[in-house]
Computed example of a mutant assay.
Amino acid sequence: MRSAKWPRSTCSCRISTTPPAASSMQAPLTRRSIRKGRFTIAARHHITIAEIYESEMVDVEKAIAHYEQAADYYKGEDSKSSANKCLVKVGFYSAQLEQYQKAIEIYEQVGTNCMDDPLMKHNAKEHFFKAALCHFIVDELNAKLALEKYEGMFPAFSDSRECKLLKKLLEAHEEQNSEAFTEAVKEFDSISRIDQWLTTMLLRIKKTIQEDVGDMK
Rank of each mutant, 00 (worst) to 15 (best):
S24H: 03
K80I: 15
S9C: 07
P28A: 02
S16V: 09
K89D: 07
H173Y: 08
M216Q: 10
I209C: 01
L119T: 13
A42D: 02
Q210I: 13
L202R: 01
T10A: 13
A180I: 06
D195A: 07
R31G: 00
K89Q: 14
F136M: 11
L87G: 04
M153Y: 13
F39D: 03
T208R: 07
T10I: 15
S178M: 03
A71S: 15
Y150T: 03
T112Q: 10
T17F: 10
I34D: 03
Y67Q: 03
S23E: 05
E171A: 15
A63F: 02
F181M: 08
V58A: 14
D215N: 10
V90N: 10
A95V: 03
A132W: 00
A42P: 02
F188W: 06
K206M: 09
I49Y: 04
E148H: 01
S192E: 14
P118L: 12
K206A: 06
E140A: 10
S192I: 10
G214M: 08
E187F: 09
I52Y: 03
Q69S: 11
I194E: 08
R35A: 15
K85E: 13
K168N: 07
K85Q: 12
V90C: 13
A42E: 02
S23G: 05
T182I: 12
L165H: 05
F157R: 01
G152V: 05
H46T: 03
V213A: 09
A124R: 02
M1N: 13
M216D: 10
D212P: 00
Y100F: 13
I205H: 04
M115I: 12
Y107Q: 05
K149H: 04
S55E: 15
I106Q: 08
N113R: 11
D116I: 06
Y107F: 15
S178N: 00
I64Q: 03
K36T: 02
K149F: 00
A22V: 06
K149I: 01
E151N: 03
I137R: 05
K36N: 12
L165T: 03
K121V: 12
E126R: 08
K168H: 06
P19R: 05
C134M: 01
W6H: 06
R35T: 14
I137W: 04
I47R: 03
C13T: 11
C134F: 04
A63S: 15
M57F: 03
T17L: 12
N177Q: 09
L170T: 01
M1P: 12
A22W: 01
F39K: 07
K5E: 13
